[in-house]
Design a protein around this nucleic acid. Sequence first.
DNA 1: AAATGCGCCAACCGCAGTCAA
DNA 2: GTTGACTGCGGTTGGCGCATT
Length: 244
Amino acid sequence: MVKPPTFDSNGMKRGAWSKEEDDRLRAFVSEFGHNNWRLLPLLAGLARCGKSCRLRWVNYLKPGLKREKFTKHEEDLIIKLHNQLGNKWSAIAGKLPGRTDNEIKNYWHAHIKKRGRRGKNSIRAPSMAHDNSAESSTSSSSSSSSSCVITDDHQQESSSPADIDSLSSIADLYTFARAQDDLSIPDLLSDLPPFSVEEFHDFDLLFQEVQNDDSSNDSADFEGRLNFWSDQSFGEDVLDIKLW
DNA sequence: AAATGCGCCAACCGCAGTCAA
DNA sequence: GTTGACTGCGGTTGGCGCATT
């Protein structure tokens, strides 16, 4: 599961971390902090690059990290936040105490994304073709505008990071509905046999929580998402809903 | 029991952003 | 304004382990 230890041309160790290395890194950071990741491995006596040390600390050694499986609540929150934020894994991780961006990213690709492909039902929402022709391999901003974009099957391959993959979640639909002033949520609800009314209202509360967080911490970003939904340029192919 | 395929996840890579000189 | 060092982020890789054949 982990890459076996090797040494690069600079003598830096790569691959899986040993317990001794973990202990050494943990002890050093606990005592001296991590003001300089580049120097840290030298001072700590680790044959690792600073980047590797930072990653190991952030993703595995940092106190407070949960190691157990994701709960249903966490999964739903991830789906909803992904709809709002796109592939901003660190931002999503910030809303999930004890979870790392790497962990969430892995979970998304391993569980949620896969699960989302099961359905052939389709909801058409704003076309994102102008900025999501493909998942960028490098750009950190490429996903920032993605939101609840739900397409039919033939569009899946080139759609946004937050498209059909998360269609199965009521959170997506709810986020979508909340952003559409002319849509009646109860009307949508009546077309959603897999989900209960109570569950829907739970997401209402959840949604408000996150919205409150956003307005205090990241209001501009949240406004941007609202603008996305109200942007006239999306008007033509918005909302051709076919449900179950 | 052996071979094969696949899922999961730790770790790596490269780019972008930030900041000090 | 430019440059270089450093950090953080997101995408991708690779191998272990489990399930299936």
